[in-house]
Design a protein around this nucleic acid. Structure first.
Lengths: 343, 343
DNA sequence: TTGAAAGCGATACCAC
DNA sequence: GTGGTATCGCTTTCAA
């Protein structure tokens, strides 16, 4: 690889001049400039990022910490981050932690060693993530949390309004005439709790304070949804509409009902949240879409603002709005064969 | 951030000694070593990767070029690459090209500037990708193609046996008693062509040379599958089993049949290839799984072997085997209500 | 308008 | 066993 020295020699100027031309950092006479440019072209010169980073203490790289690349939400967010970063001339180091403390620890070291200019953190609130955040703050590395837990304090954050998610899901059912509505909750998840709250708010507008049924899952998996679904099919509670805390639960639930000889939406209308697997389920699942891509872009914008100093002061939280995407898993309540208490 | 100089001063030794301790590059007396280690600990010293990379001309980074992070195959492969890289002490720069020539061009520059130690390329055979490959070769950057087109020559490659994919899919149908089998092909795709060939080979073992029906799609999308499905529902050809070139096509096809009042597998048994969306379709799609993760790992192993010089000489192609994953979209032929010519 | 030279933080060779 | 120092490729004063 040609170096700046080679170019200087080829063009018959000093390396200072070459540097000046390349970075537009000071006036260079037209002809001199031409000679330099020609030499660059001729030698196929590419400035060495390492040398530049060493000198400027800026690597032109940002890191994105995420717990998984297999769950569709994260790639979508990553793409938003990456697109915005690319547009601003930054590259993205993807750090896939798998939520493992050991990996998080090693990545923390890596970030410091690499001197990344900024970090986007997307992760559940593990102890080791909190440590990472502290370490980065101590080293004054700009940072923004993208869809992380509320427990991550004193940091810029880009979140989605979970209450609104629940609200929209319930609204969709209410507007279709449903009055007896259930919710699949995930124990110990604040996200799930907020979504339930949104459901309640929607119900309140109709005069009811709480859902007629709250099913409890241990976590956001299809398996959990399936188990609840089997139970549901057996007990046949008298609700006509159900909101699941996320799509995985909804898909599992749907599968169970189907296996038990019941159907969605004939026996109960169903709404998921996340809109990730909605398209591939039949009937197409109604779900609340979370703007993962936009959140990624917004996160990077916030980060850049901190990096270039155009944003200073107290941490900011940006909240994006979800949107309902209607599928075919919800039908007007009149069509349901389920007995209605208030019918 | 503390530098090696700070550590040297703190420990009362020269920077050469500090370097020696950190890199285990020469003998250092026990007590001296201790002092250095203590200083490192006390100052929270992290060696600066940029400086090290500049000096050693090695960045400890490898890049993974991919066309998309949204299509599930790529994240899976990426994870394989990343895990193997992480284990070997490398970090992965993810370059998401979106198959855009402009982005590919910019990433090519970036790779050269960053002096990545190696590159994994996963991409369809675009002109700009070929240029990238040439440029990297000219600069002697080790490289391996992961699931790329056969047109990428003179490079190590890790591929999946596409013929085998088709073979396994057809086998699954044949073993369930199907004799009249169709195939959804994608025009101008070699991948699809190979898969068709595999189907033919399976049929040949049964004495038939070609499928009874070949449907033609323009590309690997759900929409294309849907269109073909509608057509199929109208014409009701007398096949009992169908292999789709990939899962997207299968899902679209299934949806169309459903919308037309027919069903999978009652009216036709269906097998996809890729096993990506299989889980979220109901009935669960039988599909041929491509070991994306393993391919990623293998690709990185090959790359490392080139990088450390333990592998030299002519380019190697490693081919991994796919495996059938049985779902519920295939049922014994006797159950089908479709008329049988040879019944 | 341009050049010389001092580092950035680390590695590694050559002395002692 | 340990220290001094040239060097990696570039940016950036300071002079001229």
């Amino acid at each position: 690889m040609a170096t700046i020295k080679d170019v200087a020699k080829e063009a018959g100027v000093s390396i200072a001049t070459v540097s000046a031309v390349i970075n537009n950092t000071r006036f260079v006479a037209k002809p001199t400039r031409r000679r330099v440019l020609d030499a660059v072209e001729k030698l196929g010169y590419q400035p060495n990022r390492m040398a530049r980073a060493l000198k400027k203490k800026k690597s032109q790289m940002i890191a994105h910490i995420l717990p998984s690349v297999m769950n569709p939400f994260f790639p979508a967010a990553l793409k938003g981050v990456e697109d915005a970063a690319f547009a601003a001339g930054y590259s993205v180091l993807v750090c896939n932690t798998e939520a493992s403390p050991e990996r998080i620890q090693r990545y923390t070291d890596l970030l410091l060693e690499t001197q990344v200019d900024g970090v986007v953190i997307t992760s559940p609130g593990l102890r080791s993530i909190h440590e990472m955040v502290e370490t980065l703050q101590r080293n004054k590395i700009p940072m923004v949390v993208l869809s992380g837990p509320r427990s991550l304090q004193n940091v810029d954050r880009v979140l989605v309004d979970d209450v609104q998610c629940g609200y929209l899901a319930a609204r969709h059912l209410l507007e279709t005439g449903h009055e007896r509505i259930g919710f699949i909750q995930v124990r110990r998840s604040t996200t799930s709790k907020h979504r339930l709250q949104g459901v309640c708010e929607a119900l309140q507008e109709m005069g009811t304070a709480v859902p007629d049924l709250v099913l409890e899952a241990e976590n956001f998996t299809e398996q959990e949804g399936y188990n609840l679904g089997l139970n549901f099919a057996e007990q046949k509670p008298t609700i006509t509409g159900l909101v699941a805390s996320n799509d995985m639960l909804a898909v599992g639930f749907s599968e169970a009902l189907h296996d038990a000889g019941l159907g969605i939406p004939q026996h109960v209308s169903l709404v998921g949240i996340d809109n990730t697997m909605a398209a591939s389920l039949r009937p197409r699942l109604s779900s609340v879409a979370i703007p993962a891509y936009d959140m990624g872009q917004e996160a990077l914008r916030r980060l850049l603002a901190r990096m270039d100093g155009s944003q200073t002061g107290a941490p900011l939280t940006t909240t994006l709005n979800p949107a309902i995407v209607k599928g075919h898993s919800v039908i007007p309540v009149a069509v349901h064969p389920v007995p209605q208490r208030h019918a």
